[in-house]
Amino acid sequence: MNARLPASDAGSITRVAGIEVGHFTDTRRPTGCTVVMAREGAVGGVDVRGAAPGTRETDLLNPCNLVEKVHAIMLAGGSAWGLEAATGAVRWLEERGVGFDVAVGRLPIVPAAVLFDLLVGDMRIRPDAAAGYAACAAASTADPAEGNIGAGTGAAVGKIFGMQRAMKGGVGTASITVGGVTVGALIACNALGDVVDPDTAQVIAGARTEDGLRLRDTRRALLRGELPQPLLAGTNTTIGVVATDAVITKVQAHRLAVAAHDGLARSINPVHTMSDGDTLFTLGTGLSGKHPGMLVLATMAAEATAIATARAVRAAQALTTSDGLHLPCAADLA
């Protein structure tokens, strides 16, 4: 159920030292979860820009709060139900002695965010603790698969003019290395808006015309006065993780998450809407022993995020559900 582009084209988040990724894809309906793991601990940050987020443990990432390092980030489908996948990750990590020392044991810190994929197949099937546990068991430092996999399995993009005119979203990843420091991103793209090429600004995937054969270009359609369909808040959302091996503080991790949203804004239009819960986490492993400065790191974070978002739809494959919903992929309309 997944597509894969050569990782050499754009790298991947696992090129960041200390980062592992694992997917779980449910075979009963298109949904799943993806874990980005830093089992030795990584300085964490988060920035939530969408108006309808579904998250767990984001308050502790506030720079003024106590815990500095986290051990994994869970991304999942299933809307709020999917947050349960993080419980499985906590259990998997605890069994391996990974976590924050609380004197009587080790407590794994696993923030999470979810996207809404309940319109694709039987909504009663969604990621749970067992799914999160399985994603951790599958984690490795290999370049992760992209497309219809993990948290992106049931993702769709371009839903402003109705789900019947949407296209398939997915998971994408990319990385950039400058001066011996690497920044990588992994994005699960389930955007309300269109996905555009960050270099050319051309629409790659999104809302289709009435005949379903061409891209509608949502931005221009809205500016022409075409009316969107009534939208249920929170039925979309792009979520992801940006990781670096630079040495960063918790305040700087937060600023990198803020900067990474610039990458979303370059690759999704419209973005950060009232019907999206767009959330990006950051992880800093510090294993390069270097800090090139926040201007460079922020530029790298935005770039990796933009590329990973575009790859999420370019790697996706068309999907038809048992109830007749058809979501073509970018390659179908290229």
Rank of each mutant, 00 (worst) to 15 (best):
residue 2 N to H: 11
residue 3 A to S: 07
residue 8 S to V: 09
residue 9 D to M: 11
residue 10 A to V: 10
residue 12 S to H: 02
residue 13 I to E: 03
residue 16 V to K: 02
residue 18 G to A: 11
residue 19 I to Q: 04
residue 21 V to N: 00
residue 23 H to S: 05
residue 23 H to Y: 09
residue 25 T to H: 02
residue 26 D to T: 08
residue 26 D to G: 06
residue 26 D to E: 14
residue 34 T to R: 01
residue 34 T to L: 00
residue 35 V to S: 10
residue 35 V to G: 08
residue 37 M to R: 11
residue 40 E to C: 00
residue 40 E to H: 09
residue 41 G to T: 14
residue 41 G to D: 13
residue 45 G to A: 02
residue 46 V to Y: 00
residue 48 V to M: 10
residue 50 G to T: 12
residue 64 C to V: 13
residue 66 L to E: 14
residue 68 E to L: 04
residue 70 V to P: 03
residue 74 M to P: 05
residue 79 S to V: 08
residue 91 R to V: 14
residue 91 R to T: 13
residue 96 R to P: 05
residue 98 V to P: 09
residue 99 G to A: 11
residue 100 F to W: 15
residue 101 D to R: 08
residue 103 A to H: 10
residue 106 R to W: 14
residue 106 R to P: 11
residue 110 V to W: 05
residue 111 P to L: 10
residue 117 D to M: 12
residue 118 L to F: 10
residue 120 V to M: 06
residue 123 M to C: 13
residue 123 M to G: 15
residue 126 R to G: 10
residue 127 P to A: 10
residue 128 D to Y: 12
residue 128 D to Q: 15
residue 132 G to W: 12
residue 135 A to Y: 13
residue 138 A to Y: 01
residue 138 A to Q: 09
residue 139 A to R: 06
residue 141 T to S: 01
residue 141 T to P: 00
residue 142 A to P: 00
residue 144 P to N: 07
residue 147 G to K: 04
residue 148 N to G: 02
residue 149 I to L: 12
residue 149 I to M: 10
residue 151 A to H: 04
residue 157 V to Q: 07
residue 159 K to Y: 15
residue 159 K to A: 13
residue 161 F to Y: 15
residue 161 F to E: 14
residue 166 A to P: 02
residue 171 V to I: 05
residue 171 V to W: 01
residue 174 A to W: 09
residue 179 G to E: 06
residue 182 T to A: 00
residue 182 T to W: 01
residue 183 V to I: 04
residue 184 G to W: 02
residue 186 L to Q: 01
residue 186 L to I: 03
residue 193 G to N: 04
residue 197 D to G: 02
residue 197 D to K: 07
residue 197 D to R: 09
residue 206 G to V: 03
residue 209 T to E: 12
residue 210 E to V: 08
residue 211 D to A: 11
residue 214 R to N: 15
residue 219 R to K: 03
residue 220 R to K: 15
residue 220 R to H: 12
residue 221 A to G: 07
residue 222 L to P: 01
residue 222 L to E: 07
residue 227 L to N: 11
residue 234 G to S: 14
residue 234 G to D: 15
residue 238 T to C: 09
residue 238 T to V: 08
residue 239 I to N: 08
residue 239 I to Y: 04
residue 241 V to I: 07
residue 243 A to F: 06
residue 244 T to I: 09
residue 244 T to E: 05
residue 248 I to R: 01
residue 254 H to I: 00
residue 270 P to S: 13
residue 271 V to S: 07
residue 271 V to K: 07
residue 272 H to A: 12
residue 273 T to Q: 07
residue 274 M to D: 08
residue 275 S to K: 08
residue 276 D to I: 01
residue 279 T to N: 05
residue 280 L to K: 13
residue 282 T to F: 03
residue 284 G to Y: 08
residue 286 G to T: 06
residue 290 K to S: 06
residue 290 K to Y: 03
residue 292 P to W: 07
residue 293 G to P: 08
residue 294 M to W: 09
residue 298 A to E: 15
residue 300 M to T: 12
residue 301 A to N: 05
residue 302 A to Y: 08
residue 307 I to V: 15
residue 308 A to L: 09
residue 308 A to W: 10
residue 309 T to S: 13
residue 314 R to I: 04
residue 314 R to A: 03
residue 319 L to R: 12
residue 322 S to G: 10
residue 322 S to N: 10
residue 323 D to V: 04
residue 326 H to N: 12
residue 327 L to H: 05
residue 329 C to I: 00
residue 331 A to C: 04
residue 331 A to I: 03
residue 333 L to G: 03
residue 333 L to W: 05
